[in-house]
Design a binder for these strands. Structure first.
Length: 670
RNA sequence: GCCUCCUUAGCUCAGUCGGCAGAGCGUUUCCAUGGUAAGGAAAAGGUCGUGGGUUCGAUUCCCACAGGAGGCUCCA
């Protein structure tokens, strides 16, 4: 038989014998490629390496160092996890186990224990499972693909109800697929099991997979967690085991180091270490108190924001923390979000008649009342009302997390009331304002997300939503930023653009949100008198730039790993006298710096200089100034900057000029 | 809210197979007065998260609650 022709990714053609597999092709190209090969892309479809090639196929070999290769590696490791669990827990059943970012998971259900509740994995179980997985890997079990009729699959998986649901097409499984009465499976034949007369492991799966288990092994089981079957809280909770897997031990170790590094900059940890804030148990879950240093950073963040808002045409308002229920009835919050609000406070008068009050979950109803306090003219629009407004939301107990998901927090909230015609331009300038401001705080890597009409819990007509969404889309497209769609992610009253920012270690955070709202003006019946003398309904834009001051504080804290830039640092300068007799000089310098608006403090010489410097460094203070005999004599300081080189004999005036220049540059001297 | 794990000094953590607890760092005091990331000594500091139960006796075992971590669901 004549050779067949295969096209390679570089465009070259290669002649191989008929029946050559993708793996054999890799070997023919080179041993190193064959060793690194995981799967193959044949005419755009991912295939196992044992896939036989046909004449004219376009083939590229996918290796473990590529995203698709890693994905396959993790997926195959998930199968090994499932096999290990079924080996060790014979009455366990398994559900789905896809690869995820950096790793994989698999969901299981264990038989009920003596108390009748489904069993759970313990940390010890994870170790046993890990050991068993390594045995399976050592066995070099092949991954064998098959397609079998549904009915045969139902027999094989008769004891596994979740698999039966998948076969029946009731449940989506991102890694297995059923079509036209056939089910795709992967089996891991095992000589050891065969010798004992046991059936080998088989799973529903679309594949592809690595050729055999020996290609795996650089993994670590991370944790066990509960997860609802099919992501539905009304369905049974399964036991999910998470793992991470990599192509090499080096990659695995590097990943574990990255996790440690991220843990080090966790704002909850830094908050304690740097004495910034705390969550006293006596106050309640999700309710923070800010200590003096954290309070200073907050004040600086807020002051700068206020200044920028004042320059940009915002007016400052204030509103109370609680309100009678009627207000939230009018706004719609009680209809849609009563569950997320703190329970009501009921005040009885002497007749037993009372008023019901709620803690406010949002500021917009109050701002809208301010708008409605008198008749508005079109000449006043856009009217921009800003408030650092404290809001309270009853977050479910399992979701509270440090400052990023709190029950009480402060929004840098503003509502812009304008005519429908003004909205596009207002939104465009708003987006510029948002991005500029975030850049001033040190974030500069953004993308935008457009959240559209939710399926449920929604007010307003589809036409209104479409119109509002289109306005936002046009504004978003006008920026040179990536735009990601978030279908159904809007609030009940309107679509939103959110600004997503990537921090110093590449994590993304949802930052500012800008929402267009046609509903609230209608619910509150607000109007303006147009140039035609007639009454018109304004539109409303909700926007928060930090989102929440507390959350933004946490994001900056993690972004800077606690080392706030000088303009935000709670202590900018620490002065240290070499000996006690330099203290008076150091104290005079501190007084001068403080008088000039800097934040400086002196520590006396009760410890050796080296140790005092060490403490200042651990506190991440931007500048340590050391003064000794030479400095007292010449009016100079020794400057030890955070992350820089020590400089002796700097004139005080020089240092002050440099410090001021640095701070002015950071905030663009606006 | 659901699942797993956790809660011992200000912080990080030992420990008690049930007999009222320990280290390092930090704090205070004393000595030491030193030129750029840990000088020495001493002392203070704990109802072992809270409340029940079992027990002669509970920080330890059991239950509930609170708080925390990681997930799931949720996030106006």
């Amino acid at each position: 038989m004549a050779d067949i022709t295969i096209t390679l990714p570089d465009g070259s053609a290669r002649q191989v014998a008929p029946g050559t597999t993708a793996g054999e092709l890799a070997a023919a190209i080179g041993q190193r490629l064959a060793d690194a090969a995981v799967i193959a892309d044949v005419n755009g479809v991912e295939r196992d390496l044992v896939w036989p090639l046909s004449d004219g196929d376009a083939v590229s070999i996918i290796t473990a160092d590529s995203p698709r290769g890693l994905y396959t590696l993790r997926h195959s490791t998930a199968h090994v996890l499932a096999q290990a669990v079924l080996d060790l827990f014979p009455r366990a059943t398994f559900a789905i186990g896809p690869p995820i970012e950096d790793g994989f998971y698999y969901d299981f259900q264990l038989p009920p224990g003596p108390d009748g509740k489904p069993g759970t994995f313990t940390p010890d179980d994870l170790e046993r499972i890990d050991v068993r997985m390594r045995e399976i890997i050592k066995e070099r079990q092949p991954f064998v693909r098959d397609e079998i009729p549904d009915d045969d699959a139902r027999k094989i998986f008769a004891d596994h109800p979740f698999k039966l649901e998948i076969i029946d097409g009731e449940a989506d499984d991102p890694t297995s697929a059923t079509e036209a009465g056939l089910v795709r499976t992967y089996e891991n034949p095992s000589e050891a099991k065969g010798a004992r007369g046991e059936a080998s492991f088989i799973d529903l799966c679309r594949g592809p997979h690595v050729p055999h288990t020996k290609r795996l092994g650089h993994f670590k089981l991370m944790r066990v967690a509960g997860a609802y079957w099919r992501g539905d809280e009304h369905k049974p909770m399964l036991q999910r085991i998470y793992g991470t897997a990599w192509a090499t031990k080096k990659d695995l170790d590097a990943h574990l180091v990255r996790l440690e590094e991220a843990a080090k900059r966790d704002h909850r940890k830094l908050g304690v270490e740097l004495d910034l804030f705390s969550f006293p148990e006596e106050v309640g879950s999700g309710l923070a108190v800010f200590h003096p240093k954290g309070g200073t950073v907050r004040r600086l963040m807020e002051d700068y924001s206020r200044m920028r808002h004042a320059e940009s045409g915002y007016e400052f308002v204030n509103s109370p923390h609680i309100s009678k229920a009627d207000l939230f009835q009018t706004s719609g919050h009680l209809d849609w979000y009563a569950d997320g609000m703190y329970p009501p406070m009921t005040l009885d008068d002497e007749h037993g008649e009372g008023a019901t009050y709620y803690l406010k979950p949002m500021n917009c109803p109050f701002h809208t009342l301010i708008y409605r306090s008198r008749l508005r003219s079109y000449r006043e629009l856009p009217l921009r009302l800003f408030e650092f407004g404290a809001v309270y939301r009853y977050e479910k107990s399992g979701v509270v997390q440090g400052l990023t998901r709190a029950r009480g927090f402060t929004q840098d909230d503003a509502h812009i009331y304008c005519t429908k015609e003004q909205a596009p331009e207002e939104l465009a300038s708003l987006l510029n304002f948002v991005l500029d401001l975030l850049r001033d705080y040190g974030l500069d890597d953004f993308y935008l997300e457009l959240s559209t009409r939710p399926e449920e819990k929604v007010v307003g007509s589809v036409e209104e939503w479409d119109e509002a969404t289109e306005v936002l889309r046009q504004v978003a497209l006008s920026k040179e930023l990536e735009l990601v769609m978030d279908p159904g992610g809007g609030a009940f009253y309107g679509p939103k653009i959110s600004v997503q920012a990537r921090d110093a270690i590449g994590r993304t955070w949802q930052m500012s949100t800008i929402q267009l709202d046609f509903q609230t003006p209608r619910r509150f019946g607000i109007e303006y008198v147009g140039s035609d003398g007639a009454r018109h309904e304004p539109v409303m834009i909700h926007r928060a730039l930090f989102g929440s001051v507390e959350r933004f504080f946490a994001i900056l804290l993690e972004h800077y790993a606690g080392a706030f830039p000088t303009w935000l640092a709670p202590v900018q300068v620490r002065l240290l006298g070499v000996r006690d007799d330099h203290h008076a000089y150091a104290a005079r310098l501190a007084d001068r710096l403080n008088a000039e608006g800097f934040r400086a403090e002196v520590i006396d010489a009760s410890e050796k200089l080296g140790n005092r410097i060490r403490r200042a460094k651990l506190e991440k203070i931007p500048y340590v100034l050391v003064v000794g005999d030479d400095d007292v004599e010449h009016g100079t300081v020794g400057v030890n900057p955070r992350g820089g080189e020590v400089e002796r004999g700097v004139a005080i005036d020089d240092f002050i000029v440099r410090l001021r220049a640095e701070i002015d540059a950071a905030t663009a001297a606006r």
